[in-house]
């Protein structure tokens, strides 16, 4: 009883850039659910492949019905192991990611293969597969549905985060900062306008007073 997901994404950056960004993508504005990241193991094999194991801690957001059923699990973060193999010659990066606690309630396993896009070698394609399962009697389906929905929303965040970091690494002004700058400018303009309005009112009332005085 495993729910299966498969997906495909493209990043408009070279494989070299994407694989370098892979190690630098946290934190980013879309990774607030990622609390910590560590490298547990790293090795370059004799045939020049890089093997890495990372440990990630993530928040454990649950729907309210699940919080009521599993109160003991609410407070605890989810520990996630991410193993990867990077082959710079074939330009392939394979990652395998899964949670190592709360696994009897819900287990999410994800396998991604990053390689050069077949139509444009300056782009990178990501083939993603995931398996969501639960062993909770009677609730398996509900938990799997929730798990899959949360997984999909995290994929969207992961892609946005990737794009943000890739932009930053190439010296682009990040999109978010532009939005923020625009917001700030609008606020400032509003303030200036308000101040000008007040001043005009003040001047007008003063002028009116002078006028009145002239006619007295």
């Amino acid at each position: 009883m495993v729910k299966y997901f498969s997906g495909f994404n493209i990043l408009k950056n070279s494989w070299d850039q994407v694989s370098a960004a892979f190690w630098q993508r946290y934190p980013n504005p879309y990774s607030k659910h990622v609390l910590s990241e560590d490298i547990l193991y790293r090795e370059v094999t004799p045939d020049h492949k890089l093997l890495t194991r990372r440990l990630l801690t993530k928040t454990n957001r649950l729907p309210r019905w699940a919080e009521r059923i599993f109160p003991a699990n609410v407070a605890h973060a989810v520990y996630v192991v991410e193993d990867s193999i990077i082959d710079p010659f074939s330009k392939t990066m394979t990652t395998y990611t899964w949670n190592i606690n709360h696994a009897s309630i819900m287990s999410v396993e994800e396998r991604c293969v990053y390689c050069e896009n077949s139509e444009n070698s300056n782009w990178t394609e990501i083939k993603r597969e995931a398996w969501v399962s639960s062993k909770v009697f009677g609730l398996t389906r509900a938990i799997q549905e929730f798990g899959l929905a949360r997984f999909k929303s995290n994929v969207t965040k992961a892609m946005k985060g990737f794009e943000f970091i890739l932009g930053k690494m190439q010296g682009d002004v990040p999109h978010r900062t532009l939005v923020e700058t625009a917001k700030e400018a609008t606020e400032k303009a509003k303030e200036t306008a308000l101040a000008a309005k007040e001043k005009a009112k003040d001047l007008a009332s003063k002028a009116a007073t002078t006028k009145k005085q002239q006619y007295v």
Partner: peptide
Amino acid sequence: DIPVDGVDFMGPS
């Protein structure tokens, strides 16, 4: 007490 011990590389695959 993080249970990382004894997990195979590319484990559950």
